[in-house]
Design a binder for these strands. Structure first.
Lengths: 167, 167
DNA sequence: TATTGTTATACTCTATAACTATA
DNA sequence: TATAGTTATAGAGTATAACAATA
C-alpha cells in the first residue's frame, strides 16, 4: 500500500510533519531496504537472513522454526534445503524424537549472518546520526516501549529470562 | 539477520531497554508484518500492494515504475500483468511516445488499495495507542526528522511542492 | 490416530539476456 | 544507435495437499 509521500496537514506556521502512521510505514520500508541490500551483499535474501538470524541463539526443530518464522513447514523445508546446500546450516537428528530434526547454524553461517548484521547496523547507525544524542535516547525509549507493549498484547514478555524467574 | 531479541546492557537499576538499531529492526518487522497480513486479507502481496500504492497519485510509464519500485523493468512487466489480469490496473498508450505505455489504477484497484491501507492504519494506530499522546507526538517528530534527513542524503526534498515554489 | 518432516505441484516475484518496435 | 517494453528462462520463496516414518 506504500505510504503516500504527502505531508499531513500541519498547524499553521508549523514545520510540516509526516503523519505518524505513514511515517512509520516509510521508515520501515527504508530500514527493510537497508537490510535487503546488505543481505544481498552476502547473497542472502530476507527470508534466508531471518532463518540464520533466529538460529543465532536457538537450535530448533523444523516445526519450531516454522512457528518462529510464521511459515508453513514445507516452506521451511525449502529454506533450510537451500541454506544447507550452501553450508550455512546443518540438519542434525533429534535425540529425543526420531521423527524430528534439529537445525543448527554452521560456523560459515554464523560468520555470514554476523557480517550482514554488522553492515546493516552501520547503515542504521549512520541514519540515526542525523538525530541529536538526546533525540536518539528518546527514540530508543519510545521504540522500546512500543515493542514491549505490542509483545505483551500477544502474551509475550520481551524481557523474560530463559529460566522462569526464581519464585 | 533478524534482530536479536536480547535486551541491551542497561544502566544499573534502569528498566531494560532494547538497543535502538535492533529495536528499529524489530519494529520494522512488526509493521511490515501488519502490512503483509492486511494486504493478504485482500489477496495482495507486498509487491502488488506497493505497485497499487505508488499508482495512487501517479500515472507512470513502465520505466518510471521500475525506478520508483527499484525493480528491473521485466519484473514490472510481470507485476503489472498480474494486476491487470485482476482488473486492478490498466495499460494505456502514451500519447507522447509510441513505445511507451502508461499504467493507471482502475477504480477497483483504488478501492482495494484504500481498503488495505485502512486496515493497516488501524493496526498501526492500535499499536500506537500504547503510547501517551505526548509520546506519540514526540515519536512523530523524531520519525519525521529521520525520514527528512535520510531523504535529503539522497538529494530528495520530502516536502518539495509539485510546482517549484514561487520565488 | 496424531505429529514430524518431505515431496509434488502451482503460483508469485525477481533478474538476466535476447528480442521487437519505436526514437 | 539508444530507449521502451515484452518474452524466455531460471531460481527463490510461499502455500496446499498427499505421503512416509515415528509417537
Amino acid at each position: 500500500m506504500p505510504p503516500r509521500s504527502q505531508a499531513a496537514p500541519a498547524a499553521a506556521g508549523a514545520r510540516p510533519q509526516l503523519d505518524l502512521v505513514d511515517g512509520l510505514a516509510q521508515l520501515s520500508f527504508v530500514i527493510m531496504g537497508m537490510l535487503e541490500r546488505r543481505a544481498a551483499d552476502r547473497d542472502l535474501s530476507i527470508p534466508a537472513t531471518r532463518l540464520l538470524g533466529v538460529l543465532r541463539d536457538r537450535e530448533p526443530t523444523m516445526q519450531q522454526l516454522a512457528r518462529l518464522l510464521e511459515l508453513d513447514k514445507s516452506s521451511v523445508t525449502g529454506l533450510v534445503d537451500r541454506a544447507e546446500r550452501r553450508g550455512l546450516v546443518a540438519r542434525v537428528p533429534s535425540p529425543a524424537d526420531k521423527r524430528a530434526v534439529l537445525v543448527r547454524l554452521t560456523d560459515d553461517g554464523r560468520a555470514l549472518v554476523s557480517a550482514a548484521a554488522g553492515l546493516f547496523a552501520t547503515d542504521v547507525t549512520a541514519m540515526l546520526g542525523h538525530l541529536a544524542a538526546r533525540d536518539r535516547a528518546a527514540l530508543a525509549r519510545l521504540v522500546s516501549q512500543l515493542l514491549v507493549a505490542h509483545a505483551a498484547d500477544r502474551g509475550i514478555d520481551l524481557f523474560a529470562t530463559v529460566d522462569p524467574p526464581a519464585s
